[in-house]
C-alpha cells in the first residue's frame, strides 16, 4: 500500500473498493434513506463530511493513541463530528434534517467510517488519509444518490423532487417528472425495493468489472482485494 499513489486511492474509493457496492458497509442508512435522490444525496454528503474529518483526525492522532483504546477513541472522534454535522444540518437544512431524522445520528454507527479509520487512517499519513476519506465518502454518496434516483424514478416517477430542501428555492425547478400518467411502483419505495435495487447495482458493477477484465484475462489479476464486510 505504501507505494500506491493518490490515483489508486481515488479509484479504490469510487469504484474497486466502493464502501456500498463492494464492501457492503453502511447498509442500514443506505437502505433506509434512499427513497429519493435528494435524501440519498443529503445523507451521502453528511457521511462524506464525517468520514473525511474523522480520517484526518484519526491520522493526526494515530501515534498518540494506544492500540488498546483505539476503538473507543475512534468512536469518540466520529461521534463528535456527527454531532457537529447534525447540529449544522438542523440549523441550515432543517427540512431535510427532519426527513433524514434518526439516520443522521446513526452515521456514528456506520461501519464504513470506523472501518476506514481502523483500516486506513490509523496506519497512513495525513494527506493520504484525507484523499482516502474524500474518495470513500464520494463513492458512498454516489451509490446512495444513484440508488435513491432509481427508486424515486420507479416508485414515484420523479427525479430530484424536493431538491429545494437542499439547494434552496432556486433548485425547485430541478425536479423532473416522468409525467402524471406514470404509475409508480410502490414496492421500489418500500424497503424491499432498496434491497432489490442494491442487488441490481452490485450485479451491474460486477458485469462491468468482468467486461473490463476479460480482454486482459491473460494478465494476472492484481486488483486490490476488497476488505471483507464487517457489519
Amino acid at each position: 500500500m505504501a507505494t500506491s499513489s493518490y490515483g489508486r486511492l481515488i479509484k479504490d474509493g469510487l469504484w474497486s473498493n466502493n464502501q456500498a457496492l463492494v464492501a457492503l458497509l453502511g447498509l442500514c442508512p443506505l437502505l433506509a434513506v434512499t427513497n429519493t435522490a435528494v435524501n440519498g444525496l443529503g445523507l451521502g454528503i453528511a457521511t462524506l463530511v464525517v468520514i473525511t474529518l474523522s480520517n484526518v483526525t484519526v491520522s493526526v492522532i494515530r501515534n498518540w493513541v494506544r492500540p488498546e483504546v483505539r476503538l473507543p477513541v475512534f468512536v469518540l472522534v466520529i461521534a463528535s463530528f456527527v454531532t457537529a454535522v447534525e447540529l449544522s444540518m438542523n440549523a441550515w437544512f432543517h427540512e431535510l434534517y427532519k426527513i433524514l431524522g434518526i439516520f443522521i445520528p446513526l452515521i456514528v454507527t456506520n461501519c464504513a467510517i470506523i472501518g476506514r479509520a481502523e483500516a486506513f487512517a490509523s496506519k497512513n499519513s495525513l494527506d493520504r488519509s484525507l484523499v482516502d476519506g474524500l474518495a470513500m465518502g464520494i463513492g458512498f454518496t454516489l451509490a446512495l444518490t444513484v440508488l435513491g434516483a432509481l427508486r424515486e424514478m420507479l416508485g414515484m416517477g420523479t427525479l430530484f423532487s424536493q431538491a429545494d430542501l437542499m439547494f434552496g428555492e432556486i433548485a425547485s425547478g430541478l425536479t423532473l417528472s416522468l409525467g402524471d400518467e406514470f404509475k409508480g411502483m410502490l414496492l421500489a419505495i418500500l424497503p424491499p425495493g432498496a434491497f432489490i435495487g442494491l442487488g441490481f447495482m452490485i450485479a451491474l458493477k460486477n458485469i462491468i468489472d468482468k467486461r473490463l477484465t476479460q480482454p486482459r484475462k491473460a494478465e494476472t489479476v492484481t486488483a486490490a482485494r476488497p476488505e471483507p464486510a464487517a457489519g
Binding site: 404509475k183 409508480g184 411502483m185 410502490l186 414496492l187 421500489a188 418500500l190 424491499p192
Partner: peptide
C-alpha cells in the same frame, strides 16, 4: 405479491 404491494 409484487403487483399487490405496488399497485393495490
Amino acid at each position: 405479491v409484487l403487483l399487490l404491494v405496488s399497485y393495490p
